[in-house]
């Protein structure tokens, strides 16, 4: 997908519109008569095939941002554009993954994975065939007939990710997908996703509060301020691809990490003041 992008650029044709564009998005809630602004004029753009992270302190509205992009909530102001066009009816246009695995406990791993295909009316046999083909990649081969409760947290999250990929949408929205896992499992999942993403050819927006995760996986990182969330800055992750998990111990990574942390901590201190 990225190679297609570069050919377009090389031939001098009109640049392709970004896969996802968010323009001056604001969201506020009114709870018990109290006005609570959550997002304040957030703008960002994600090119097709790009991996972009949104990082910020908890409560900065990054999950709300993802919910709005997914079509689960409507913004108070601003627009969401998909492929350059305003997307008012965008629910179901992107695949969405939550911090909780949200696997249906009465369905086997396989039947959970094909949920998106099933809801679209793809036959059970064909849906199973597509899922079976991906099981080894997701480390679930041999576990397809198990119920979710029999799996480890990491496996459950991979099953949830398989379900997300099998929704067969070009845009994946991941809301702290590894946030509920222990540090070691999380590192393993990050390394795995790093290897997997390049073969998936999907556009990914990842919401996280894990600095290493954002830097290791992303092409670019948007840094949000505390509530009401605004985009404070955008950081290009200049690390070359393909990347490996060992990159996290390199000098270049440490420098990027220090910069990003300083940015986040500054936000934190401002909030305390």
């Amino acid at each position: 997908m990225r190679s297609a992008d570069s050919t377009a650029r090389d031939s001098g044709a009109a640049p392709r519109p970004p896969k996802l564009q968010v323009e001056r998005l604001s969201k506020s809630y009114t709870m018990g008569g109290v006005h609570l602004p959550v997002l304040d004029a957030v703008s960002m753009a994600v090119a097709a095939g790009e991996f972009v992270s949104v990082i910020g302190p908890s409560g900065c509205g990054k999950s709300t941002l993802l919910n709005i992009v997914a079509g689960l909530e409507e913004p108070t102001q601003g627009t969401v554009l998909l492929d350059g066009a305003p997307a008012n009816d965008r629910l179901g246009a992107s695949a969405y993954m939550h911090q909780k695995d949200l696997l249906l406990p009465w369905r086997s791993v396989l039947d959970n994975a094909v949920l998106g295909l099933e809801l679209r009316g793809v036959s059970r046999r064909e849906a199973h065939r597509r899922a079976q083909a991906l099981l080894p990649t997701f480390g679930l081969a041999g576990f397809e007939h198990q119920y979710p409760h029999a799996l480890s947290g990491g496996m459950r999250q991979r099953a949830a990710f398989l379900r997300t990929v099998l929704a067969e949408r070009p845009l994946l929205l991941l809301d702290e997908p590894f946030g509920a896992l222990d540090a070691l499992t999380r590192a393993g999942m990050q390394a795995w996703l790093l290897g997997l993403w390049q073969s998936l050819s999907k556009t990914i927006v990842l919401v996280t509060h894990d600095v290493d995760e954002a830097l290791l996986l992303s092409d670019r990182v948007y840094v949000m301020t505390p509530r009401p969330g605004q985009v404070r800055t955008m950081l290009e992750v200049t690390l070359p691809r393909p990347r490996a998990y060992t990159l996290t111990t390199s000098h270049a990574f440490a420098q990027l990490r220090a910069g990003l942390l300083a940015m986040l901590w500054r936000e934190g201190h401002e909030a305390l003041r």
Partner: peptide, 23 residues
Amino acid sequence: VDPDMVNLLRTLGAGRWQVFRKV
């Protein structure tokens, strides 16, 4: 039913009846 589960099904294109029947 966890409301997040309902939201997940909605992002997968499920209508109200499908949420009811499948979840």
